[in-house]
Design a protein around this nucleic acid. Structure first.
Lengths: 157, 157
DNA sequence: TTTCGTGCAAACATTTTGCATACTC
DNA sequence: GAGTATGCAAAATGTTTGCACGAAA
């Protein structure tokens, strides 16, 4: 829990307040609209920068797309994937080994429906880790290469 | 399995072949580079259009980002989410009900590592479904509203 | 008084669209 | 020959960056 510290500017304070008031999981421009009611001259880039900073400081949570580009795949059957958090490489996971996980998710479904009021239809499950090559090159270099993203590997608190 | 049929143009044939040769999960421009070696005048928009069509025809698989925009959240603790495939609304799932799922995933980890050669570090799990409001309005209208995306709800074949 | 944050405009990356021409069935 | 698909250029979208000015520690 060694979080970056950050200067509390007025913009930051307002962004944080509005996010708390918002309650849900707004996108940047949803929040931008609200914040502008308080600070009409704030710039969208300030909102972007500050949400980023606030999440680095551990004050807020960030949900970023785990993949920004579409990807295609010669095999039209749906299967599970594992993605390298270092280089972005994506591999398939043989679905034979995922039976228990699928069962557990299926069992959870009723509870999820009850607790959220949703009618659950499916899920997205993607594993994250270091691919064999990156594992190798990290071992050699003793640690850290580009490490592009890969915060929040899915581990809960 | 009522898939759209599609005209087999030369561009489509080449895109399909190159995707099959590629083997992995290329992005559009990775594939574009390969296809251009065969068809130097092909346009990137043709590649986009055709990958889309080929996946509608069930000939290839598509992995699209489950979320294209970043989202933020006043609560910095990591938790599970459920997203409405109709309106995009996102809600939290109480993590207390996810224990079994987490355990199953943890158990699967060793096997995943063995089969893929990765060093698995975490995962992304997001549930998909219809939120209470959309459920309601679908009941009224008898079916189908905008239904923005939500193909491949995570259900395997 | 230095370091850091801001607003603005411009750049960026990915994807989509409008349109005239060309190709498939 | 009707209905699609193509290439091109331009737009749309979401996000990042460079820079000169301004504010916080």
């Amino acid at each position: 829990m060694d979080h970056k510290r950050c200067r509390m500017t007025n913009q930051r304070k307002v962004i944080l307040e509005e996010l708390r008031k918002f309650g849900g999981h707004p996108t940047v421009d949803e929040l931008y609209v609200r914040v502008r009611e308080k600070l009409p001259d704030i710039s969208i880039s300030t909102v972007y920068r500050n949400l980023e900073v606030l999440s680095e400081c551990g004050l807020i949570g960030k949900l970023e797309p785990e993949r920004t580009q579409k990807q295609f795949d010669a095999n039209p059957k749906i299967h599970f994937h594992i993605r390298c958090t270092n280089c972005g490489r994506l591999d398939d996971i043989p679905s034979s080994i995922m039976n228990e996980v699928e069962e557990a998710i299926q069992k959870a479904q009723t509870l999820v429906n009850k607790m959220t009021g949703y009618d659950m239809k499916g899920y997205h499950l993607e594993f994250l880790g270091l691919c064999p090559k990156c594992k190798e090159s990290m071992k050699k270099r003793g640690r850290s290469t580009d490490e592009r993203k890969g915060e929040n590997g899915g581990q809960k608190d």
